[in-house]
């Protein structure tokens, strides 16, 4: 009994036992306090505090018991080799190759058919397992499908009314210079692929030339100082929601791609590879803003089928 392996580590075991007991009692009090805190519907903080005290008290006491009061050793245990004897290995390997070999030689055809059958079964089960999950993506741009089965289409058509997410039609005098607004084609408010950011870049009237600072050949795509671009980042599809009026840049908050508003929203910086697709817009005689066509390319991030 005087073996040092079995003596508690604590210099004064009686005192350590008292400390461990006290710690556990504090823990018990903590749990009781938790029940009370729950009972009186106290705050989350009180619940956490009481539960934490309970668990920490109980835990500390138990650790003290295990570490300072139990026989500390050190104790030793022998390891045993994992591998079997050579004879056992030979017997095992022979059982597989020998017995298996005989059967493979005898029934080659059966084995082949079994393997092919198993493969077909896997394929047969995988088809509904995968194919039922969702629609096939539509092949190309001219598909008249909905935006739900095509990465190429949006709901923007020539003449679509620009409306806010709340459905309010957007008039030509709605925005001051420097203003931005997220718009949708009427009837598709809040739709992800259709989101468009409308910017008013200059104070131009109906008799002025259309907004000039667009890409070459697209000067007619804006109207009265307004331009409209897809709000889907061409990097990973986040909404390009930050407009820095001073530098005339659109910034995607996800991965910091920056698009130059004054130059057809070409990417100036960051991981986005392509300009934001531009939506041609116009104003009808009543002052209502309308799309003057659809996007000339797929919106959002790149994918294999994109030409």
């Amino acid at each position: 009994m005087d073996d040092p392996h079995l003596q508690p580590l604590a210099k004064n075991p009686k005192r350590m036992e008292a400390i461990a007991a006290l710690s556990m009692v504090v823990g018990m009090a903590g749990f009781v306090a938790f029940i009370f805190a729950y009972w009186v519907n106290a705050s989350t903080q009180w619940e956490a505090l009481t539960l934490g005290i309970g668990m920490a008290g109980l835990g500390a006491g138990t650790i003290a018991w295990g570490k300072y009061l139990m026989p500390p050793g050190p104790f030793v245990e022998e390891r045993h080799d994992f591998h079997s004897t050579d004879d056992e290995r030979t017997a095992m390997n022979a059982a597989i190759t020998g017995r298996g070999g005989i059967e493979v030689k005898r029934r080659k055809m059966l084995l082949g058919i079994f393997a092919v059958g198993g493969g077909i079964m896997t394929l047969a089960l995988l088809i509904p397992g995968v194919r039922s999950l969702g629609p096939k993506p539509a092949k190309s741009e001219d598909t008249q499908g909905s935006t739900e089965d095509s990465l190429f289409t949006t709901n923007w058509k020539k003449g679509s009314k620009l409306v806010t997410v709340g459905g309010r039609p957007v008039k030509v005098d709605d925005l001051d210079v420097g203003g931005v607004l997220t718009v949708f084609p009427q009837g598709f408010e809040g739709s992800s692929p259709d989101q468009v950011i409308l910017l008013r870049l200059a104070d131009l009237g109906p008799n002025d030339p259309p907004y000039p600072l667009s890409s070459p050949g697209r000067t007619e795509w804006g109207v009265q100082g307004y331009v409209a671009y897809s709000k889907l980042c061409t990097h990973l599809g986040c909404p390009v929601g930050l407009y820095q009026q001073k530098t005339q840049q659109l910034v995607c908050p996800c991965h910091q791609s920056i698009f130059d508003v004054n130059a057809g929203c070409i990417p100036q910086f960051g991981p986005a590879p392509r300009p934001l697709p531009q939506l041609p817009i116009t104003v009808d005689p009543t002052g209502q803003m309308r799309a003057n066509g659809s996007f000339d390319q797929a919106v959002g991030p790149g994918f294999w089928e994109r030409p």
Binding site: G27, L51, G52, I53, G54, M55, A56, L58, G59, A60, G61, T62, I63, A64, W65, G66, K67, M70, P71, P72, G73
Partner: peptide, 16 residues
């Protein structure tokens, strides 16, 4: 008993 005691205590401490 040593490891059981210490690790159970440690479990409660982690929970805490």
């Amino acid at each position: 008993p040593n490891f059981i005691a210490k690790t159970t205590g440690f479990l409660f401490m982690s929970f805490a």
